[in-house]
Computed example of a mutant assay.
Amino acid sequence: MHPLVQKIIDAHGGLERWKSFSTLTAHLKQGGALWMLKGQAGRLDDTNVTVGLTSEWASHHPFGPEGHVSHFTPGLVQLKDAAGNVVEELSDPRSSFAGHTLETPWSVAQLAYFAGVAMWTYLNMPFLLAAPGVKVEDIGPWQEKGETWTRLKVTFPADVATHSTVQTIYVDANGLLKRHDYDVEIAGNTPGAHYIDGYTDVQGIKIPALRRIFPRQPDGQAMAEPLVVSVDLSAIRLF
């Protein structure tokens, strides 16, 4: 394992401890401009999220005012009613975003795909750095907020559904995540700067509970507004 990856993972509780769990659940509150822009305002403002830790899947419940439950995997998205009946599904969901820009509206199933990709990636980071096929490269220091952060370029294999193949994480001197950059491929490669805070200890794993995402400029600096997405987590549990 890359020495910096080892430091980062150890700072978050260690790989052995992480591998003793298979599922993470949390209460989720979200805000920001993205949801209205995509024609899905309010649908996931206050919900619960569950993600897999040993394979790529995620679920939100309730998914909208109908009380549906979403189930995301890279190859299939389903929405089910309270009785478990499939009310909507989308096969090969990534291909449905072809030609999309930031302003292109999403269907409910496409929202479920985005939300699944996002929360699975966020809640499995930084332990994803040790996953098979993931490549990392130390790309040097970064000055921000009066601190010096170390940057790590992360390249994901083709079988991982995430925002973009190449991403960048920033960590402080203790190895804790401070920022996470990516280009949202399914929204016209829109560049984002994702700030991470509010660490809490959950059963021996350090998990950030607060996330704020802003547009990223070509020089790597984040714009002060608009707030694209806010993520607030509570009642986090590992199983």
Rank of each mutant, 00 (worst) to 15 (best):
M125I: 01
A131Q: 12
E137T: 01
A115P: 06
V136F: 01
F127K: 05
R151Y: 01
Q110E: 14
G140V: 12
V108Q: 15
L123G: 02
K145I: 04
A118P: 00
K153E: 12
T150M: 08
A118K: 01
W149N: 06
E147H: 08
V108F: 04
V136H: 00
D138C: 00
F114K: 10
E147Q: 12
A115C: 08
W120A: 11
V136C: 14
Q110I: 06
I139L: 02
K153W: 03
F114E: 08
A109R: 09
A112K: 09
A131T: 06
V117M: 10
K145H: 15
G146I: 04
T148H: 05
E137K: 13
G116Q: 10
R151G: 07
Y122F: 15
E144H: 13
L128N: 13
K153I: 02
K153D: 01
L129D: 09
Y113H: 14
M119N: 08
G133V: 02
L128C: 10
L123D: 05
G116M: 12
T148P: 01
Q110H: 05
V108P: 00
W142Q: 11
V136P: 01
N124M: 05
A112T: 07
W142A: 09
P126Y: 04
N124A: 04
G146E: 03
N124F: 07
W142C: 11
E144R: 12
I139W: 01
L128G: 11
P141E: 10
T121H: 09
M125A: 12
F127H: 11
M119R: 06
L128A: 07
P141F: 02
W142N: 13
L123F: 08
F114T: 02
R151D: 08
A118D: 09
D138Y: 01
G146H: 03
Q143M: 13
T121Q: 11
G140I: 11
W120N: 05
G116E: 06
L152S: 08
G146A: 05
M125H: 06
T148N: 11
D138F: 00
